Simulated assay, not measured.
Amino acid sequence: MSLENRTCVVTGASRGIGRAIAEEFGNHGANVVVNYRSSEGEAHEVAEAIEESGGAALPVQADVADEAAIEAMAETTREAFGPADVLVNNAGVTVDKKFENMSREDWKRVVEVNLGGVFNATNAYFEDIKSADDGRLINISSVVGQQGNYGQANYATTKSGLFGFTRTLALELASTGSTANCVAPGFVETDMLETVPERVQEKILQRVPLDRFATPDDVAGIVRFVASEDASYMTGQILAVNGGMEW
């Protein structure tokens, strides 16, 4: 499942799942654009790790919610590596509150990044993916988009919205041979999970048949498969990487 000489863009790639995906791509020969919003040091660490493994990497700062910044990132990508073959829409934020306490700004911030950012990045790279041999659009959703989650009405809505977006883009890209798929991780050992109280984490684990949380690498391996030539006949799918949780 080599990605040799493929140009892969990963949004939100400085930490967590995004970092693991970027490094996984680099380990398999890809040219990787490491997008970040504010974690410059971490993004450069990711790029250095990719280059040490034999890949090529370019850290690029851009807030996915800023359309002009993402358009500029797409131009930078083409100048450095040529048109993108793979786009992974991973960047996302949370502002967790019970709905009765959620402000319009809390709602707007999450929607602007988690859905608006996906629109911006997909729009900026759409012609690249459409024209590529085996182009790949991969959206990172969540089990929360399938199940809902207490205190996350805004986040769950955005992650559920990616299902319809993915399916529609799959249909629109199909005639070109490029694909669109969605990976929906369960609960992953990242900074986001660390903010969850231990008693709540224990309750979540009771719902996971494999009796452990995912690691970022568990997700990255699946994303690398979806990005590879081996997944060329799969499109419009939601891949639940959740340890067996029902949804």
Rank of each mutant, 00 (worst) to 15 (best):
N120L: 05
V93P: 11
H28D: 13
G26H: 02
D133K: 15
L193Y: 11
Y150A: 11
D66E: 02
N90I: 05
R136K: 10
N242I: 00
D230K: 10
G151R: 05
E45M: 05
I129V: 10
E246Q: 14
V188I: 14
N101H: 15
D128A: 07
V10D: 12
E127A: 11
I140S: 09
A13F: 08
G221P: 05
V33C: 00
V33W: 02
N101L: 12
E202A: 15
T76K: 15
A62E: 05
A74M: 00
A56Y: 10
V88A: 01
A84P: 07
I204K: 01
L239K: 12
G243A: 08
H44G: 00
D217S: 14
N120E: 08
R136W: 04
Y36A: 08
N35R: 00
D63T: 07
N149P: 07
Q61V: 14
K130F: 14
A22C: 01
E45D: 15
G117N: 07
W247K: 13
Q61K: 15
T158W: 07
G54C: 07
G18L: 07
E246R: 12
E42C: 08
N154G: 09
L210R: 09
S232F: 11
S14L: 00
P83S: 01
D66K: 13
I138P: 01
N139K: 04
M234A: 12
V200F: 05
W247Y: 15
I129F: 00
D218W: 15
A153G: 03
A56K: 15
G41H: 06
E40G: 11
G12E: 09
V183E: 03
T122H: 03
D66A: 04
G29I: 06
A80R: 03
G135W: 01
Q61C: 14
A132P: 06
I138F: 09
E127Y: 01
T76G: 02
A184G: 02
P59H: 02
E45V: 06
G148E: 00
G82F: 04
E71T: 12
Q146P: 06
A74Y: 02
S142P: 03
V219L: 00
A65M: 13
I21K: 04
V219S: 11
F165S: 07
N114K: 10
D128T: 10
R136M: 08
T166C: 06
L205D: 09
V9W: 01
L87T: 04
T122G: 11
V10C: 13
L58K: 05
F165P: 12
A84L: 05
D134E: 14
E48V: 09
A170V: 03
T76M: 10
A180V: 11
R136Y: 06
M102R: 14
R37M: 08
E75R: 11
F225T: 09
A156P: 12
A57E: 06
R78K: 02
G41C: 01
P59M: 02
S175Q: 12
R78D: 00
S178A: 13
Q201F: 04
E67P: 02
A231N: 07
R37Q: 13
N154T: 11
D134L: 11
T190M: 07
D211Q: 15
V241K: 05
S131R: 05
V32D: 10
S38K: 15
A156E: 02
H28G: 07
M1R: 05
V46F: 06
